[in-house]
């Protein structure tokens, strides 16, 4: 083998390789070609084995030609490789396409009960004003449920609370959360800002607007300087947070034996915006809670000196607040637990 024939052999090999590269239709063919030409046992290596038979002076020149040939084949391979990769990726993406308009795979969703949620929302709002949640027994004694709240046995105001009594002497199912006022005052010294949620019971036939079990939230604030103005301001804030900033409120006299003065708190009818409709008995207002300044006798029963301490209490029915907020018209929906109702609160 001489220099010339070796060189031309290399060029022929190069031309054949370049043609094969150009003709390759897949990366796999290309990789095969790579090994066949450039690999350890490839055709280029085979040709270069002939170098040993050349005179020493010619060897560098053939080496130069060989490098040039290798480089051009590698370049062609790389270029073709890149081209094929793009095409192949495009092919793969095309075959992987799915119908994207099908519905997703649903994740199980639960719902939280509107009464517990509303109670939590009330606690959250008053929590912003420093009110702390306390709880107490639902099987309550007559003393705390009534007498310490200035409601003696046979007090005519007992008509306001139809009571369920139990087979434990001296006990009943608490008719309101107000006995917690007494329990909190007995257990904590002022300043007191307490929020008292829970289940209450009444001797009452169940219909759309009456329940024998429902939930109330009581509030109690007692220290040395809490006024009726504080009560009004706080209730206004509550109404804004719960029903919206644009709703007017009304602060008017009410009656409870355990507050003096007593308050009824109204918010503008959420149905008719105050113009008068059946929902608000055409008054334009809806009563959302009762309140008042804690009666001196109640402070005394709580172990506090009414000359030194004063404060207010308020109480609201959670169902009523939830009714107004969500437009629910029938109390029975809350206790029936029909999932078609509950799942709307997600």
């Amino acid at each position: 083998m001489d220099l010339t024939s070796l060189s031309s052999e290399l060029h022929r090999l190069r031309d054949a390789a370049l043609a094969s590269v150009a003709a390759a239709r897949s990366s796999a063919t290309l990789e095969l070609l790579d090994v066949e030409v450039l690999g350890k046992k490839g055709s280029l290596t085979a040709v270069l084995r002939g170098i040993g038979s050349l005179p020493p002076d010619d060897r560098p020149r053939v080496g130069a030609v060989a490098n040039e040939v290798r480089a051009s084949i590698e370049a062609a391979l790389a270029e073709r490789r890149a081209t094929l990769r793009v095409a192949e990726l495009a092919d793969r993406l095309a075959t992987e396409a799915v119908d994207v308009t099908t519905p997703g795979r649903p994740i199980g969703r639960g719902a939280l009960h509107p009464i517990i949620e509303t109670m939590g929302r009330i606690a959250e709002i008053f929590g912003r004003f420093g009110f702390i949640v306390h709880e107490g027994p639902e099987v309550e004694d007559d003393l705390t449920n009534f007498q310490m709240l200035n409601i003696a046995p046979d007090h005519p105001a007992r008509d306001l609370w139809d009571t369920l009594y139990v087979d434990v002497p001296g006990h009943l199912l608490r008719t309101h959360t107000s006995p917690l006022q007494i329990r909190v005052m007995q257990a904590h010294r002022p300043p007191i800002r307490a929020l008292l949620p829970g289940r209450v019971f009444r001797y009452e036939a169940v219909d759309a607007s009456h329940a024998s079990e429902f939930f109330q939230v009581e509030g109690l604030m007692v220290d040395e300087g809490t006024t009726m103005g504080d009560l009004r301001g706080l209730l206004d804030e509550f109404s804004r947070a719960m029903f919206g900033h644009d709703k007017r409120t009304r602060f008017r006299p009410g009656y409870y034996p355990f507050t003096e003065p007593s308050v009824a708190f109204d918010v503008e009818c959420l149905v008719c915006a105050g113009s008068g409709c059946p929902a608000c008995s055409r008054t334009g207002w809806m009563t959302i809670l009762g309140a008042g300044m804690v009666h001196p006798v109640v402070l005394q029963h709580g172990g506090l000196d009414p000359e030194r301490y004063q404060g207010f209490a308020f109480g609201m029915g959670v169902e009523r607040i939830a009714n107004l907020r969500h437009g629910v018209g029938d109390l029975r929906l809350y206790t029936e637990n029909d999932l078609r109702f509950l799942e709307q609160f997600r």
Binding site: I132, V133, H188, E224, G233
Partner: peptide, 22 residues
């Protein structure tokens, strides 16, 4: 008239912190 009682927000001492049972 209760409506003539000026509304204010409480600015008296706060009670100490307690965890909510909720």
């Amino acid at each position: 008239g209760y409506q003539k009682i000026p509304p204010i927000l409480p600015h008296t001492a706060m009670p100490p912190y307690l965890d909510s049972p909720l």
